[in-house]
């Protein structure tokens, strides 16, 4: 990047230099923030990740000790990984499927489309803390409305946030309540599908299901890709919902998500070095997953335009 400000040739016209300086002046807010609050911190946390750093005092170089401990000696780390992967593996695909299903239902000529869209999008407007409170209240065993209805239907009544096996499903329900955001994106994606394709399919005698499966879904794949990546990144950064749900007696460690554990290490155990190592592992993991997804896109994402 230095090459931008200090051109190697030295034969740049003054005009050119002035242009560069003017450009840099305009982007300087971002540039300063980037250098100060991003680039330096990234490098610093990489350094911390190789140290024993307990906030008071100075970091001591310990090589790969943090990483070794994380992978070999810290079962809680693996608990947090498992919790996070489980959450991602269930909530993201479910969100994609339900999001597409709702968008398809809405996309056809439906009376009151904009009303439905508003209704589906509305839950995403409820802030996290009230939303989790509401979740806990709705899912209260036996007197909450959800369990009451389950009981009436003769279904088992889970302990939800009170039960290690059901706490994550409860949060997955919460995530699905916010599926409206992706419905809007899918709707926009559907709108971009050229009508002529449907027409051609209709000529070939394709029914609704066939049109959906052979025309709509393939052409929606770029949007699916986007939602998948955003959903996964969101799942890997999951924090506030789990943290707040923990206040309602979330059963032991069943809501210990990766970032919750990272937060605990940093701000509760003061293990800044260890937490930094966790952050870097997350970064690398997210990069790998994202790259992997984009690698496979050739096989399933169709760009019609």
């Amino acid at each position: 990047m230095r090459a931008v400000g200090v051109p190697g040739s030295g034969r740049l016209a003054r005009r050119e230099v002035r242009k560069i300086l003017l450009g840099l002046l305009f982007v300087s807010p971002w540039l300063v923030g980037f250098l100060w609050l991003q680039l330096y911190p990234i490098l610093a946390s990489l350094y911390y990740s190789f140290t024993d750093y307990q906030i008071l005092g100075t970091p001591h170089w310990t090589g790969f000790a943090n990483y070794a401990r994380m992978f070999l000696h810290d079962p809680l780390f693996w608990v947090s990984v498992r919790n996070t992967l489980f959450f991602a593996a269930v909530s993201v695909p479910l969100g994609v499927v339900i999001g597409i299903a709702l968008a398809l239902l809405l996309n056809a000529r439906v009376r009151g489309l904009s009303l439905y869209r508003t209704i589906y999008y509305l839950p995403t407007m409820i802030p996290v803390v009230p939303a989790v409170m509401l979740l806990a209240w709705l899912l209260t065993p036996s007197i909450g409305p959800v369990n009451y209805l389950l009981g009436q239907l003769g279904l088992p009544e889970p302990g939800w946030l009170n039960d290690p096996a059901w706490a994550k499903p409860a949060l997955i329900l919460l995530a699905l309540w916010g599926v409206g955001g992706s419905v809007v994106i899918y709707l926009a994606g559907l709108q971009d599908i050229p009508a002529t394709l449907y027409e051609a399919a209709a000529i070939d005698g394709a029914g609704t299901w066939q049109r959906t499966w052979y025309v709509t879904i393939p052409l929606l794949t770029p949007t699916i890709l986007f939602n998948l990546v955003v959903g996964l990144i969101g799942a890997f950064q999951y924090f506030a919902q789990a943290y707040v749900a923990g206040a309602f007696g979330g059963p032991l460690n069943s809501l210990l998500f990766y970032n919750l554990y990272l937060y605990q290490n940093a701000f509760q155990y003061y293990q800044m070095g260890y937490a930094s190592a966790m952050a870097w592992v997350l970064l690398v993991f997210v990069l790998i997953v994202t790259l992997a997804i984009f690698r496979t896109t050739g096989r399933w994402v169709h760009y019609a335009r």
């Binding site: 911190p41 946390s45 906030i55 940093a266 952050a279 870097w280 994202t290």
Partner: peptide, 16 residues
């Protein structure tokens, strides 16, 4: 930078 998880900058930022 949009791809960067905030956790990577969290701790040094906090210290700053």
């Amino acid at each position: 930078t949009m791809m960067l998880p905030y956790q990577v900058t969290l701790i040094p930022q906090y210290i700053i």
